[in-house]
Simulated scan of single mutants.
Amino acid sequence: MEIIFFEKPGCGGNARQKAALRAAGYTVIARNLLTEPWTTADLRLFFGSMPVKDWFNRSAPSIKSGTVQPETLTAEAALSLMLEQPLLIRRPLLQIGERRCAGFATADLKSRLGLELPETVPDGCAHPNT
Rank of each mutant, 00 (worst) to 15 (best):
M1L: 04
E2D: 11
E2P: 14
I3M: 02
I4G: 04
I4Q: 10
F5S: 08
P9D: 09
C11Y: 07
G13M: 00
G13P: 03
A15F: 01
A15Y: 00
Q17M: 02
Q17Y: 01
A20H: 00
A20C: 02
A20I: 01
A23V: 10
A24K: 08
A24Q: 08
G25D: 11
Y26V: 04
T27Q: 10
T27P: 00
V28T: 08
A30Q: 14
N32C: 12
L33P: 13
L34Y: 14
T35N: 11
E36T: 15
T39M: 06
T40P: 03
T40G: 04
A41T: 15
D42R: 15
D42Y: 12
D42C: 14
L43C: 07
L45M: 11
F46R: 06
G48P: 02
G48T: 04
V52N: 02
K53Q: 06
D54R: 06
F56E: 04
N57F: 08
N57S: 11
N57W: 08
S59P: 03
S59K: 12
S62E: 00
G66Y: 02
E71M: 05
E71T: 08
T72Q: 14
T74E: 09
A75W: 06
A75S: 13
A75Q: 14
E76N: 13
A77Y: 01
S80L: 13
L83V: 12
E84V: 11
E84A: 15
Q85L: 08
L87R: 04
L87C: 02
L88N: 05
L88V: 05
R91V: 05
R91K: 08
P92G: 04
L94K: 01
L94S: 03
Q95H: 01
E98M: 06
E98W: 01
R100T: 12
R100L: 07
C101W: 10
A102N: 09
F104P: 13
F104D: 12
F104G: 11
A105I: 15
T106K: 07
T106F: 03
A107S: 13
A107V: 13
D108S: 14
K110C: 08
K110R: 13
K110I: 00
K110F: 13
S111T: 15
L113V: 15
L113P: 15
L113H: 15
G114H: 14
L117Y: 13
P118A: 14
P118L: 12
T120H: 12
P122M: 09
H127V: 06
P128L: 07
P128R: 09
T130R: 09
T130W: 08
T130E: 06
